[in-house]
Design a protein around this nucleic acid. Structure first.
Ligand SMILES: [Mn+2]
Ligand SMILES: [Mn+2]
Ligand SMILES: [Mn+2]
Ligand SMILES: [Mn+2]
Lengths: 218, 218
DNA sequence: AATTATTTTTAAGTATACTTAAATATTTTA
DNA sequence: TAAAATATTTAAGTATACTTAAAAATAATT
């Protein structure tokens, strides 16, 4: 299957995970940076290949086959991120960009070798779960988003759920890193902001960021 | 530049290295598994991009720009081979196949990180030289092909110059491996065959193989 | 509920990288 | 050196993955 197809099913899969719904072609198009027309075309093509169910004006739904494909690509992406992160001194965002390409050019055999080398990790350096070779995911259901965290409580960062370059630059500048700890010093409930203490810094984060930073009680 | 273009300039470059000449579209087409017509089309397109010089019915000649591109792709290919060979238990041919794809999806930055990690190696696991980031190659001019080796002499294998799956399967089965040693027990000059002693085995190789196995005096 | 705004789909067209078939040039060989 | 064989080029056509512009349907607003 082509790179375009792999990216398309992956985008649908991730959309259904995160954004609750709106898996219509237009929204997928926006995420992939292509036109709505291109996304509609692709949706029809993938329906013919039985990777998804398509009905005019309805939400796109991955079939089991489509879901398997998405999980296989995501597995390769996250294994590459884990490997590059471990081996090389590169920013999380650079690593993500490399993985975005490498994920499509990696045999199942090589993916398995990488997984083995890393001791079959269950999470990548963003805290995102790595599906196993069968497409099974270990979910971490103890995590909550920073927006829901309790004042005065100390937490460990368990997941940075984003692909955004600016976000990761911000993280890098503020020690917001997978497995670092922080303390929630104040929740500004009305203004949807959260004040945290991380290292020796006090930072106030708005909802855009507190909704994608996940933490575990320590 | 696209994968097709990168593979095309690489094929021309390698052809000029090994096969002395015949760098007409037809021969490149054969190596890439595409039609002659496709190769002619591509040659014209690359001439427009100033990657090569094209004149009807003449040999294709890479420009400096085209050579640089070829060397950059070859660098990435061989760095990946070196990395995968070091890290994972995979056959040389499997490694080659992965590298054939990964070479096109690797930033210069990542290539440099791989090179650094490996201690800037000058040779890949086949003994092929790895160009540096500037496209410079360290040539090993002490090596000779097994077909030219002296009877009774012991050598170290310095290069296996092939992409062929069967050849590498043969090598794997007979301990013919980069940096292994062997002794030439007999040169059958008339029949263009060479008898070698490697490990506890005696093998007679024909010219197809002795011309692509390079050795250094030990 | 009707109008307006937004989204989705269809239609028509483009670039890339191929194909096969035919025309043309080059190379071999008799 | 002329005919035959081979290789290269041109021409016409295909699949993929996009585009923009328009028509059609859905969703939001008054
Ligand atoms: Mn990523
Ligand atoms: Mn991708
Ligand atoms: Mn190789
Ligand atoms: Mn390649």
């Amino acid at each position: 299957m082509s790179v375009a197809i792999e990216n398309f099913v992956k985008a649908i899969y991730k959309n259904n995970m995160h954004d609750i719904k709106d898996t219509k072609p237009g929204n997928i198009a926006k995420k992939l940076g292509i036109s709505n027309a291109a996304a509609t075309d692709m949706a029809k093509k993938l329906a013919a290949k039985e990777l998804l169910n398509y009905e005019k004006y309805q939400e796109l739904q991955l079939t089991e086959k489509g879901t398997k494909m998405a999980l296989n690509v995501i597995r390769k992406h996250r294994l590459w991120e884990a490997l590059l992160f471990k081996m090389f001194d590169m920013s999380l965002h650079d690593i993500h960009r490399e993985a975005e390409l490498l994920e499509h050019q990696t045999s199942d055999l090589l993916a398995e070798k990488i997984s083995e080398y890393l001791g079959h990790p269950k999470f990548d350096p963003h805290g995102d779960p790595i599906p196993n070779a069968l497409g099974e995911i270990t979910t971490k259901n103890t995590s909550i988003s920073l927006s829901e965290a309790k004042e005065g409580q100390t937490y460990m960062i368990s997941r940075l759920m984003s692909d955004d370059k600016e976000f990761f630059e911000f993280c890098a500048q503020n020690q917001i890193k997978y497995r670092n700890t922080l303390t929630v010093s104040k929740q500004f409930v009305n203004n949807k902001m959260t004040q945290i203490l991380i290292g020796s810094n006090t930072i106030v984060l708005n909802e855009d960021f507190t909704k994608i930073i996940y933490v575990d009680e320590n």
